[in-house]
Nucleic acid binder design. Structure first.
Lengths: 197, 197
DNA sequence: TTGGTTTCTTATCATACATCAATGCACAGT
DNA sequence: ACTGTGCATTGATGTATGATAAGAAACCAA
């Protein structure tokens, strides 16, 4: 078992001792995925929540016109999953793919069940995770409703400066809801503005 | 106490008997709000989840340019709240306002606490609500990333045919992320198409 | 009924962004 | 060192949607 980051994440958020956590983590498989490999494809049923120990994962959908839309990036210490598919046991609309060679912990429902049985504080913790997720989605909706291409990009840069450098611009564009060409122009314009100052 | 719809909603989703539910509901205030009255304003701390017994409520934000963005519509049997503000005890970024004379049940954190203490199945139920919320937000993000004005409108019509007729088009436009004028054009175009068929 | 809001439509014009197409890099594999 | 493939950039052009303004219609209150 080799998931030090997840262990740290849990122990620092839950009232739980090392023995307990180790025994629970033992049941989780750690998976190494090569760049470009898929953890989930459209129409599959997502059975896991993935915790990223190392590397970088992307979740995206493909619309009827064949265009990709990035739902989220997940670097180290982040979770990625199709919660809807897991929870409602539906076919997923998303792809989950590694952008770099990565290590992920595959967490199944059993794991959560065990945690909630053995750790009283887990329910609250899980609640917090869900609320954080909601907050995040809500923020994104607000952005998509109100911000221009440039504002979206600036917000992204401020929020995920690290991811920016590890991901092709095409994918950032598809996260922001604009074309790669537009993103390129936005960047050019920003560079010009900054130079003039 | 006069909240028959909430009572029905809870009894049909939770393993709970009438006496219990009544004693818990007693602690909830039912509020009558006139059309245009506010349940929450920007910068206030949202302390309640509102369950709509009758009428229609809207949640929206106002951006730096003064433009309104509708977050959600809540007709009878829906909840509306700023979860982030309640949960993280932050100032809200939203307004919650009645679009019609309405009756809402004001649910505070105590209520949820009581439920989770007394009703074992509540935790799961709450989880389900949160997941539904997430599913809903996710769907909206997908729409905003990929759909044209016309597609958005059609989706809205299909999803909320009832709300469509009770709400001014301006607000529907602000939900879809387009201007009222654009919405008018879209509708005209759709009418033309349907006529030709 | 009247007059006054508010909402919806329509028209014109402006613009941000998309699309299409060509070029230039940079990097990986041979 | 070559060559191919994937990205980023750039320019030319197109289009959907936004902005503004004005009139028509719907709604409401006195």
């Amino acid at each position: 078992m080799n998931s030090p980051k997840l262990k740290l994440f849990l122990t620092s958020n839950l009232d739980i001792d090392d023995d307990e956590i180790l025994s629970i983590l033992k049941s989780c498989q750690v998976k190494s995925v090569k760049k470009d490999a898929f953890l989930l494809r459209e129409n599959e049923h997502c059975k896991h929540t993935f915790f990223v120990e190392s590397g970088l994962i992307r979740q995206y959908s493909i619309d009827d016109k064949g265009k990709e839309h990035t739902i989220s990036f997940a670097p180290e210490n982040w979770f990625v999953s199709d919660r809807e598919s897991v929870y409602f046991d539906e076919a997923s609309a998303y792809y989950i793919q590694a952008l770099e060679d990565s290590e992920v912990v595959m967490i199944d429902e059993d794991f959560f069940l065990k945690l909630s049985e053995e750790i009283p504080s887990f329910t609250d913790f899980n609640n917090k995770l869900l609320h954080n997720h909601i907050r995040h989605l809500q923020k994104r909706i607000n952005m998509l409703l109100s911000a221009s291409a440039e504002q979206r990009y600036l917000e992204f840069v401020a929020m995920y400066p690290d991811i920016l450098l590890r991901v092709p611009q095409t994918m950032i564009a598809s996260y922001l809801g604009i074309t790669p060409e537009s993103l390129s122009r936005v960047r050019k314009e920003l560079a010009r503005k900054n130079f003039k100052k």
